[in-house]
Design a protein around this nucleic acid. Structure first.
Lengths: 106, 106
DNA sequence: CTACTCACTTCAAAGTCTGAAGTGCTCTTA
DNA sequence: TAAGAGCACTTCAGACTTTGAAGTGAGTAG
């Protein structure tokens, strides 16, 4: 390779590195992709090593990037809704499926 | 959904969360997958936002998990080698290809 | 010889994550 | 209807990670 030359950066745009770079973001998207809309508590139970503070912050980042949105679950009269993937989030989830299988298999 | 029940955890085993959870690990693996073996400096130039300290720490984690290894480049008599994906690292890279395209397209 | 690149290391400051605790609210069950 | 459980967080201190700038010693090109 010629010296001093820079390669193409394979990194996502600034806004996304900070979301996808979050330790649990990929897990949350995978979880919602598998199970559909979920409330806070079930997400928390499925990711035993995440603290509620971190989970809140992860969910807010994902909302800011329009990857997840809050939805109301019809079978439930609660004030706050559940979290579901948006269209954009679904696309991300589909791209993550092979990665998620590798992780589980590894 | 029944209350109080926990879902399957979609998370990788403990050792891997801490590697893949590193902010730049996925970028480094993608970069090495695209370009083959690379030295420290070109990797650093391709990931402009990473500091050398963080890059060193990321590479060490990836080595510890046997995802990258140091190799000697024949065209170069330097003491330290370049970094290349292992077999395991290649498998990870293949699983990351759709994710990487989504990130670039997003 | 001199200047440059390489592959790091060091340091302080900023940011992120953990783990435990606590808050106010909404259900369910007796 | 009152007690208790679960929900969706928030707060806090301490630990860990990343940044950004600077510096180091060894190798290489002119």
């Amino acid at each position: 390779m010629p010296r001093g030359l820079s390669l193409v950066c394979p990194c996502p745009p600034a806004g996304l590195v900070d979301v996808v770079g979050k330790k649990w973001a990929v897990c949350v998207v995978t979880l919602l992709g598998h199970h559909g809309a979920l409330r806070f508590a079930p997400i928390q139970r499925s990711l035993p090593a995440v603290s509620p503070a971190t989970l809140t912050s992860t969910l807010r980042s994902l909302e800011r990037e329009h990857l997840v949105a809050r939805v109301r679950i019809s079978t439930d009269g609660r004030a706050t809704g559940a979290y579901a993937l948006t269209e954009r989030g679904e696309a991300l989830y589909r791209s993550l499926v092979p990665f998620a299988s590798w992780l589980r298999a590894a």
